[in-house]
Each structure stands twice: as structure tokens, then as C-alpha cells.
Design a protein around this nucleic acid. Sequence first.
DNA 1: AGCACGCCGACT
DNA 2: GTCGGCGTGCTC
Length: 803
Amino acid sequence: MTKQYAQIIVDVPTMQTDQPYTYAVPENMIDSLLLGMRVTVPFGRRNVMGFVVGLTASTDLPEEQVRPIQQILDLTPVLNTELLNLSDYLASETFAFRITILQTMLPNVFKANYERTLRIIDEVDDDVRDRLFKGLDEIAFKTGDFTESDMATLLKLRRQHKIDVEVAVHDKAKIKTQLAYQFSDDVEFLEDELRGLRSSAKKQATLLQFILCHLAETWVKKDLQEVIDISDAVLNQAVTKKWIMKTKVELLRDPFHAEVKQTALLELNAQQQEAYERISGTFDAQRFQPFLLEGITGSGKTEVYLQVAQHVFEQGKTVLFLVPEIALTPQMVRRVKGRFGAQTAVLHSGLSDGERYDEWRRIERGDVKIVVGARSAVFAPLTNIGLIIVDEEHETTYKQSDNPRYDARNIALWRGQYYQIPVILGSATPSLESRARAQRGVYELLTLTQRAGGAKLPSVNVIDMKETLSRGPETNFSEELRIKLADRLAKGEQSVLMLNRRGFSSFVMCRDCGYVPCDPNCNLAMTLHMDTHTLKCHYCGHEEKIPTVCAQCGSKRIRYYGTGTEKVEAELQELFPDARVIRMDQDTTRKKGSMDKMLQKFGNHEADILLGTQMIAKGLDFPDVTLVGVLNADTSLGLPDFHASERTFQLLTQVSGRAGRAKKPGEVLVQTFNPQHYAITYAQNHDYEGFYRQEMAVRHAGNYAPYYYTVQIQASHSDENQAAIQMLKVARWLRSHAEKDVIILGPSPKPIAKMRKRYYFQIILKFKKRNEMDTLLQELQNRAQKAKGDLQLSIDRDPVSFM
DNA sequence: AGCACGCCGACT
DNA sequence: GTCGGCGTGCTC
């Protein structure tokens, strides 16, 4: 028997252990151990979980250094070669640990559960036995169960071999099983048994006859008892008589059984047809090619996706369909399920760990042909993929904002390349980066310029709020908007009002001294919540009562500033007491399914006005909406971020697209204090290409993406001075090691400098040559890891936010 | 992450 | 001398 060795990535997320370790495969495991399985291995003086990422016949290590694998945790690999390769790519792309990446790619249940047991093995003090062990000989414990001094005591006892600790690695992924019976296939035996039965044994005879008709089949107990009325006693007898054998079959919970009616294919217009043919042609040629599908709102991008998907299905391949956020796109999900029915798996954030695991199993077993999901669905264990779709590709939700900071768009492209298939990036307002790639011919550009069914784009009017406010009292509603709203109400048509709260909050301020109550942890202005009459910090969740007296000067003249949806709703009710308003924001849609319910209500005309934050800008399709009002277009322009104009343009275009989607023409009113800003004027003219050209010039002048790569290095420390000093060191080190053409900005305190009792600083790097910088950044991270203190450093490639 | 090892000051 | 504090380095 030849020896075998396995390369294992262990579940210890640190820089020093971020490498494969070599273990010996015990002889009895050689046949069953496969690449991509999880195992437990001894590591130091404990056991940890690990992933098999390589199998070899030899090792350079001396024999005595190699320890054997302890246990195999999976029956089949949880990761295939494709996903293992992907994890390599991601590790270098995101500066994250291999183990973190591997766990990110899998459902939560695959994370190991470490159960530790303390056991007394020698005489100990009564105090220890009574207090720490609650009078018992052994006790289960988790980190944090004991105080630091108790931990010290326990550690000491262990060194004296008076107590022992045992760590068991458990698997959270339990395959739910159901009791079933496997029938015998021995016809003669069964027939003998049937003949030998007493005439009174009617039930047994029924069962035997049934078995004879279904030889060697496996029946779930519940199903069996439904078909033939047999009691448990009879079944047990049958087991002892060896007619049948007890087994277990996997039970799959199905969270989505709601049946949907099949929806028919819609006819494509000439542009859609052209796009369809370009993409399906690429699929037929088995070639990797990204397509940028730039289609104005309402131009029927979805129908193109679905028909290409249909074509891909017919060739026996599967489809991966990414959307920005399932909760915000219920209409899209319904359409996909309507077309592809039970072969669809929907991965959304509302799933419990168990449900998510079940969906994952369904996909992995090949029961599913199309997977619809948000960011993390890009890791769906589909094989044989024939098409990947990234809808609303400009959305920032595709980028994960904490470690590992991966970008689902890039992963989609990676997987597309792996399978040599087309990847569709669709948007009405493509990200500048993608549009620029299309310009360079990296992506193939497909454009849809006509709305489906011949509907027209709405006319957009920009209202200068400076004038409105100079004429009258403070208000959120210009005269023009009031008139239009009244008009729609009179005609029985619907309106959508959006309050742009991006980077904006309503707060409380003292009229006499200007004091703003800030939360004690983050030092940020707290946001006013009128429903609970409290002030909340949106970053750490701190909550307190609205003060009636100024904490700084004692004045009672505390006043509300800014605008929350609640305040707008109140003003709206005052202006139009008879209007039925639905308010949609984070507070009213927190509950699962409440958003969908509200949208259905609006769709059924049970309300006249839908008032909401930017969550209403996406994907909603209501034919009777003829007026869209944007109450404050420019709050997103003031963000400390070079994407501010792009985000504003995208938001305005998206929300405008909600108006006039059917027969009736739509109208949009945009209230702003910056009516001349190009992001607003180009959005007004529905001119994406014009905006793209101007914004590219701005980016070029400022050395921003897509002309330069951007990397954000951020560090935090519990001590403000230390944070600043360490980051200055980092900056100095970078300046002396980087090429001359690398632009290094900072360090500077982050716009939100203090968060959760830590101080944040950032350095922004802008550069042209990626490979050289990657090497440098990798080294920076190594050094940071070794540095002492509680400095936390993270590297974010192409950050989507600088907040 | 854990855990051992080893160096140093404080103390029965 | 010995105990326990913490900094350093290793885990196939």
C-alpha cells in the first residue's frame, strides 16, 4: 500500500497559519478521503477542522513531523476543484486568509463547532470543585464562561495534570433524515412467508403482497403507511422477519413550495433580438465573453436574460443569476420562478442556516437548474454552468464590505472564464469601470434604447429648492410638486416619492448654542426616530430618549433638523389629509415579508402615494404610477467619496424609471439645491452616455478609477494617538517602498473616525501597475500582523465607499 | 486562536 | 530559591 499525504488548510484564521499543512492519510481513509472534504486534524495540542486542498504521494517533511488525519467529516466533498481554484484566486485578490475564504464560500452550517469539556482527573480544592465545576466531575465550557482569574486557576490545574480538557470538533451540518424501509428482493423467500401466514394475519398478507409488487424498493415510512394502512407493530414484525430493512433517507425541507403559474415568453423587439442572438451565439461557440447590456429602465433586459437562459437550458446547462438584493427585487424573482418553476433555487438573506443548507444541497445534488441570489450566491455549487447574469451590475451591494472583501462581479467573470461561457452584466446606468471596459472592447456592449411596449421615458423637471425656500416657510414640498400631487390624486393615479437619505440623517440641535447630541461610543450625530421618540446611532445601535433640555447650555429650545420619512409623511398628511400613503423605510420593512406585502398593497391600488427611501428606486414595476417626486436629490452629492456623482446619477435615473412604464405617460419632479450639477442635468435628459463622458473626464483629471486602481488601507486602534502614529509609519513605509508614480493620500481620520470605541484612520493609494503594488500590499499585511498592539489593519481593493 | 516556553521581577 | 507576570514563537 502506498502512503498518501493531504494538504490541509486549518481552521485557524491568522497570518502565520495561512498555509497548507501536510498530514498523513491513515490507510483506512485512503479510499474515502477526497479533495475538498472537511477533516479534523491534530494541530498543536488540540484538534481543529480543516479542508483538504491537495493530495500527494510524497512529502519533503521528515516522517516524524507528519501527523495523521483524525477524522473525515464529509461523505462527499463540499468543494469541487473549480471552487478550490477560485479560493486561490480570491485569497490573492482580497488579502484574506484561505480558511476565511473557504468558509465564506459555504453555508454557515459547515463551520466547525468546537465543544470543550473540562474533566477533573485528580484531587482538587473543594472550592474549585464546588464553584467552577458546580460539584460535578466534568463540565462543558465555552470561551467567556469563566472570568480571567478563574481561567488562570484552571490553566494552572491543567499544568499540574489535575484537570484535563477535551476538544471535540462537531459538524453543524446535520442531514435531516426520515425513517424508511428497504424491501427485500428475495421473491421465493417472500412467497414462502406469504404461504406460511395464518389466515387471520390479514395486515401482514397485505404488506407482503405490496412488497412483492415493489421488490427491492425503498419506501419512506410515512408514505408507506399512507398507501397501505399498516400499523407500526406490523412493520416492526416485518423487520424481525427480514422482509424489510430499516434505513434512513435524506429529508429536504422545501422553503419555497408556493406554486407559480408559468409565464409565457414575450416577443423581443429588434434590439432585444440582436442582444439575444449575440449572447446565445457566444454560448453556442463555447467562448468566454462578458457582455455589458446597457438598457434604459423598462427596456426589457429581464426578458433578454430569461430567453438566453431558456436557450442555455435547452442545451442541458445551468444558469447563475445574481441580483443586488433579493428583498428589493421580489418582482424579478417571481418572474424567474414563473418561467423556470421548481428548478429554481432562490438564495436570500431571509433563509435560516438550515434552509440555506438545504438549498445548497439541492443545488449541489443537481436538482436545480437556475440559482437566483444576491452576492453570496455567486458561490453556488452549480456545475455545468452555461450562463451567468449579473443584474444591475453597478450596484455596490455586489462588493462585500467586510472580510473577505470580495466583489461578486469579478467572481462571476472568473467563473465565466472557467466555464468558457457568456457573462451578462446588465444595467441602465453601468458603473464607470464596466462602461470603460466596454469602450476598450474587453466587454461587448449591447444597448437597448427603447422601452418595451413603446412606452416613453418620463419627462423630468428640476425644481430649485433655494427659490422655494426663499419664497416661503421651510417645507419639503415645492409648489410644483404640491400641484402635481393634487392633480394625480384627483385623477386617481399613483405617485412615488423618494427621500434620498444616502449619507444623510435627521438630527436634533439646540437653537441657542448649536449643540447636537452625539452618541457616546461613535461620536456621531444621532438620528431622530419619531415613532419610538428616541435618538439612535446608526452605527452601533446606541439608543436614548430625546432630550428636552440642551446638555451643553441648558436651553429648552431643542429643535429637529433634517428630514426623516416620518416627518415627510406627517407633512404629506397635512397637505393631503385624504391621501392614502404607504411609508417604506428601514423601520417599516424590517419584518420579513413586510416589504413584499406593502408593494402588493400599492400594486392593488390600496394607496395613492408610496413614500420611501432609495429602496423604492429599484426594480418596481407599477403601470399606474405617473408621477415620481425626488424630495432632495442632492444629499448624496456631498458624500466624501469620488463616486458621489455616479451614485446620484444612478439613483435619479433608477427612480425616474418607475414612472410611466405602461400606456400613461410619466412625469418626474426632482427637487434640489444644485440644479446645475451635471449628475442632475444628465439624469434629467436621460443621457447616460453624456454623463459617462463628463464623469470620465472628471475621473481622469482627479486620477481616479477607472484610470487608476484604488486601494484603501484602514486601521483602527483603541487609542487615538496610537492609531495615528501607526498609520503614519505605514504611510512612511509605503512612500519609501512604492514606485514614484503611486499616489499616496493620508493617513487621515475616516469621515466616521470613531466607531464602536475604536479610532479609524485610512490611507488611499492610487496606482497604475497592479502586480507590483500587490506584492507590496501583501508584505504590508505580513508586517502589520507581526506588529504588536491591537492595531487592526485591513486592505480593501476598489473600495465602494470611503465612509 | 491557543498554548508552551522562557525571561524577569517579587516574594514566602 | 520559587512563583507567576507577560512577550515570543510554533502548530504539519
